[in-house]
C-alpha cells in the first residue's frame, strides 16, 4: 500500500507527472474514453456498412446527374488529419512528463491544423451541396452527406474539446488535466482513423 498514490494530491505539474509514472493501470478516464470511442467506431462501421449495402443494390452509384466524387483533395485532407496525431502524441508525452508549456504548444499546433482542415472541408461541403442535395441525389446523396457530416461533427467536437483543454492548461497541470490530455488525444486518433475510413468509402465510386 505504500506505493499507492493519492492522485487527488497531484495538483502541481511535478506531482501530476509522478502520479502518471507510478500508475500501473490506465486511468479510468482513459478507459471511459476508449469505450466511448469503441461505441462511436461501431456507429461509423454501421454508417459505412449501410453505404456499401445501398451501393451494392444500386446500378447507378452515384445516380445520373450527380458527379463522381473527386479523389485527390479528400485523400490529401485525410492525410492532414492523420498528421495531426503526431502533435497530439507529443502533447501526451509532454503532459505525462509534467511539461505544461510543451503540452499546450503541441495541442495548440494540432488545434490550428484541425481547424484549418475543418474550414476547407466546410467549403468543400458547400460546393457539394450546391451541385446536389440529399433530396435530389437519391440514396447516394443521403449516404454521402450523412457520412460526411457525421465525421465533420466529430472533428468539430474534437476541436471544442482541445480548445477547452487549452483554457485549462493555461492555469497549470494537474493529474486531472494530464488524463484529459490523454483522453482528447485518444479521441483524435479515433477521429483520424475514422477520417481515413470515411474518405476511402466516399471516394470508392471513383476508384
Amino acid at each position: 500500500m505504500s506505493d499507492v498514490t493519492r492522485s487527488v494530491h497531484a495538483t502541481t505539474p511535478a506531482a501530476a507527472a509522478r502520479v502518471a509514472s507510478q500508475r500501473r493501470a490506465l486511468p479510468n478516464g482513459w478507459w471511459g474514453a476508449a469505450l466511448l470511442v469503441a461505441t462511436e467506431a461501431t456507429l461509423f462501421a454501421c454508417l459505412i456498412a449501410s453505404y456499401f449495402y445501398l451501393y451494392s443494390y444500386t446500378t447507378k452509384w452515384p445516380p445520373p446527374g450527380v458527379e463522381r466524387p473527386s479523389v485527390a483533395l479528400p485523400l490529401v485532407l485525410a492525410a492532414v488529419l492523420v498528421a495531426t496525431c503526431v502533435p497530439m502524441l507529443l502533447a501526451v508525452r509532454a503532459a505525462r512528463a509534467g511539461r505544461v508549456g510543451a503540452t499546450a504548444g503541441w495541442v495548440a499546433l494540432a488545434l490550428a491544423v484541425q481547424a484549418g482542415y475543418l474550414a476547407v472541408q466546410i467549403v468543400e461541403l458547400k460546393d457539394d451541396l450546391d451541385s446536389f442535395s440529399p433530396r435530389t441525389g437519391g440514396a447516394y446523396a443521403s449516404a454521402y452527406y450523412t457520412l460526411l457530416i457525421a465525421h465533420h461533427a466529430h472533428v468539430l467536437l474534437g476541436i471544442l474539446m482541445s480548445a477547452w483543454l487549452l483554457t485549462r492548461l493555461a492555469s497549470g497541470l494537474t493529474n486531472y488535466r494530464v488524463v484529459a490530455t490523454r483522453v482528447i488525444a485518444l479521441y483524435w486518433y479515433f477521429v483520424a482513423a475514422v477520417g481515413v475510413a470515411v474518405t476511402l468509402t466516399l471516394v470508392s465510386p471513383s476508384l
Partner: peptide, 25 residues
C-alpha cells in the same frame, strides 16, 4: 441509433435511405 437517424432524416429532411424509388432499401 444509425437506423433511427436514417429514419428521421428520411421523415424530416427528405433523405432516401429507405426509399426504393430513389435507390434506398
Amino acid at each position: 441509433t444509425v437506423a433511427l437517424i436514417f429514419l428521421e432524416l428520411d421523415r424530416r429532411l427528405g433523405f432516401h435511405f429507405y426509399d426504393p424509388s430513389a435507390g434506398g432499401d
